[in-house]
Amino acid sequence: MITVVFWISGVFLLLQVVLLTYLSFSKQKVIRKDNEVEQVYHRVLNPYLAYLSGEGDQEPDLPSNEETRISVIEKLLSGYVSNIKSTGDEKRLKHTAEKHLSEYYRDILNKGSWAERVNALYYIEDFRMDLLQSEVKRHFHSLKERDEEYRQSLRVLASFGEKALIQLLKSDDTFSTGFIKELLRRLPADLLEELKKEKDIPVFFQIGMISYFGETGYYEHLPYVEHHITHSEKEVRLKALAALCQYRYISSADKLAPFLTSELWEERMYGARLSGILQLTRYSTTLMKLAGDSKWWVRFAACEALKQMPDGEILLTFAAEGHEDLYARDMARQLQTLKTGVSR
């Protein structure tokens, strides 16, 4: 038995020594590579920035070693991409990235590890490498897992204005509103217009669109958003109301009245909030009533709205001192002292 234990212990010990040796060597290799990349990067940074910004015609020499060259180029372009000011800058970025990285990324998409593929997809989008659009599309169709690689492939395709994306988005209800918005943010304006004209857009997608339009604040989407406050689906109506709060607009104050007396507390809350944002004094009495609503959020929105009215302080003082409802008085007192931005 002792011999067996010694053998097992010996094997474990050997395993640990092998592990330690592997760790030391791989660590040393990584440190060496990082140092080399760092050195080259600092050497070429200024001349390369001059080249990218069009001040110099001659591209600075880059290392012949592919691994180092790729790392340096990625680092240079990642830094440069946040400073792009003109379409000329963008063209040079795209041209340089495609010249040095397109073949490499093609290989990575075919044979790279998961992390390498995801990194490549991040860079393909950042560096606007639309030369690789068909590769990314092919790669996307080959994916089985719905993980970050899948999501990033879709982001890349959206930023390249891939038309087939619209049908995919319409047919797949597993996408979250947040993710739909991520894609909408990337779509070119003409595709967005096409989307607005589509007849059979599912509810989950409409919610994403309305929410995104509210976020942009672009006037051209406003009629689409306002049209949806009478939609049959509650969630669509709520998103449209929330978006109008962001737009700080409604074409007619009359349209708000049904929401202030709605059976749904979310509608009462948004109705109150929008009344405050637009300072619709005609609803002050209704808001005063809503300050004693059974829902905390409605009370908060109503008191916040009262505070925003031209005579807000007086209204709030009245609510804090004279409201028949104890909760309304509490809320009004909190709003008197609480510094709050306008909730949207």
Partner: peptide
């Protein structure tokens, strides 16, 4: 191991 080379900054940029 799968995520060890992942670009962390890009991962949360969105």
């Amino acid at each position: 191991r799968k995520e060890r080379q992942l670009n962390r900054e890009a991962h949360i940029e969105e």
